[in-house]
């Protein structure tokens, strides 16, 4: 059965060791983690973990059940089952030679990004978007010379209130 990308949104008790329980579950059972993002929610004591994994259907079912089995997991949503919005933030440090500076700024403008740091030889660009947008800007900036990238990993919400 074909592997597909699944975005899991996991509400957990905000307690010490919870992340390690989830990471340990994935490593111990041989599941993949493509990206992982953790932060508090509006509700006190509850955090949301957005986790992207690659798995076929029976396996993703098993992953969701195993996550639910963890005592500190409150609820697991598979975002991929329905309409959702996703975003990721990346910071890209790109080599900015005098002859490239205008071009880079044009790309930044087109992609509605921001330059957050300027050096003698570089720009650091903040870009927010879905995976496609991030991939696109990377491929456009690559010829100028990307020095470093830092990414947050994906976060996601359902379109409808759940």
């Amino acid at each position: 059965m074909a592997e597909e990308k699944h975005v899991l949104s996991i509400l957990v008790d905000n307690k010490p060791g919870v992340l390690s329980r989830i990471a340990g579950l994935f490593s111990g059972r041989g599941y993949n983690i493509d990206s992982l993002c953790v932060a508090e929610t509006m509700e006190e004591g509850v955090s949301r973990i957005t986790l992207v994994t690659q798995a076929n259907l029976p396996l993703v079912e098993q992953i969701k059940k195993q996550l639910n089995k963890l005592i500190n997991v409150i609820k697991v949503f598979d975002m991929t089952e329905t309409e959702y919005v996703q975003r990721e933030l990346a910071m890209i440090k790109v080599t900015a030679k005098p002859e490239n500076r205008a071009e880079i700024l044009r790309i930044v403008d087109i992609f509605r990004c921001k330059v957050v740091d300027v050096g003698a030889e570089h720009y650091t660009i903040e870009v927010t978007g879905d995976e496609g947008k991030l991939a696109a800007i990377r491929s456009l900036l690559r010829p100028m010379g990307i020095k470093e990238i830092a990414r947050t990993g994906m976060i996601a919400l359902f379109r409808d209130v759940k």
């Binding site: 060791g17 390690s20 340990g24 005592i71």
Partner: peptide
């Protein structure tokens, strides 16, 4: 020991 037994305890 909490770290060591995480994968072999129910909680």
């Amino acid at each position: 020991i909490v770290g060591i037994t995480r994968p072999c305890t129910k909680h």
